[in-house]
Nucleic acid binder design. Structure first.
Lengths: 202, 202
DNA sequence: CGCTCTCGTTAGAAGTTATAACTGGCAGGT
DNA sequence: ACCTGCCAGTTATAACTTCTAACGAGAGCG
């Protein structure tokens, strides 16, 4: 990586403590959502006093941004790992659902309600398009020739459409399920999801 | 209505002031999301002092619940109005998008990230299923016979599937668009939405 | 016309984020 | 090995937030 991160004992301590903060943060987010994340509460849990954490994170937003970054990386890894083992779109779909169900609030952190003022830093959007690239790659069928117009590999229109439908439809079912909008409707979300996935891949 | 609401001058004043509070609340929500809603700020805007508002809303959550109720009512009205004028599913889809674009944060209040602790009161879920009923009705084709098994009119399986797909797919595109996940992708969300709607209705 | 209810006020408790100033100890360079 | 300087974590404080309590004043109700 470009940003060096010198391996001094102090730097290692910093990194370790930042990781510990984030671990507690994930716990709180899973329990009360991103809105209920409190630096003070984390500090209390770690046995230090409030302002101590400001040595490691400039403010609450920076911590959340870092968590978003990690979440994107985690999802990108899951997708890439699945894609690397010669998987098709259906497998990617199942991976996505598994990843989302593992921590719904983490999914919402990426694809849930955005804060009007907030603008994602460039590197997080970069990871997001990495995910999209993996999707595009998996959505490409043998018949699709990747016409490289210009410098960027232009995706085949059909593949792009497939990937887009994959994304929006699965997100549609998934987000409504995770938000609990299917409860009391006598309906198995897994079946609905599998159904959409079936439509997408045949 | 069951809850009487006597028409005394005081009651009218109460209702009018509650409405004014909610109006300011919607402004704040549109600007900073539901998380950024502050009773204190509303009070300041209205020229009264903070605790005054607690005469009208027990707490912040009750205000938000009321806003959710109103939002559901607004959407249900829009859907029902469209459906009443002999419209098909495609028209309902366009109505949904128009309604959502009019105030994205209002859409997210209903279908966005849920607060883990929060449980919607029964009447709001009742309005939600009212919307679902309108959808089911519009999704019913002439060939679908509504078999009334038991006391509740059991929807035809095909109509249920259509309505469900309508809901999840349009929500998928819409929520990603409103959250800004398509920005910088050289892609017209309206086209994508129309495309899904086309798939849904042919 | 008088009583009472309710409205809005100020005060204050218990939180939150975040900054400033201070102290103690460890790390690193000489 | 020492000494210096940086840095972690502390307390104090400001400016917020929600929400409760106690109180005065006035308007509506009978």
């Amino acid at each position: 990586m470009a940003t060096a991160g010198k391996d001094t004992p102090r730097e290692r301590y910093r990194a370790q403590l930042r990781a510990e903060v984030k671990q507690h943060a994930w716990q709180q987010i899973a329990a009360a959502g991103a809105a209920g994340l409190s630096l003070n509460a984390i500090a209390k849990q770690m046995g230090v006093s409030g302002p101590a954490l400001y040595r490691y994170f400039a403010n609450r937003d920076e911590l959340i941004t870092e968590l978003i970054r990690d979440a994107y990386r985690s999802l990108a890894d899951a997708i890439r790992t699945t894609a690397a083992s010669g998987a098709d779109l259906a497998d990617l779909g199942r991976t996505l659902r598994t990843w989302a169900l593992a921590d719904p609030q983490r999914y919402f952190l990426l694809y849930g309600t955005p804060v009007p003022g907030y603008h994602a830093p460039h590197d997080t959007t970069a990871i997001a398009s990495e995910i999209m690239d993996a999707l595009l790659d998996a959505a490409r069928t043998p018949t699709d020739t990747t016409a490289t117009t210009g410098d960027r590999p232009q995706a085949h229109p059909a593949a792009l459409r497939r990937a887009l439908h994959f994304w929006t439809r699965l997100h549609g079912v998934l987000s409504l399920e995770l938000a609990g909008h299917f409860t009391g409707m006598d309906l198995d979300p897994a079946e609905l999801y599998a159904d959409e996935l079936h439509h997408l891949t045949t």
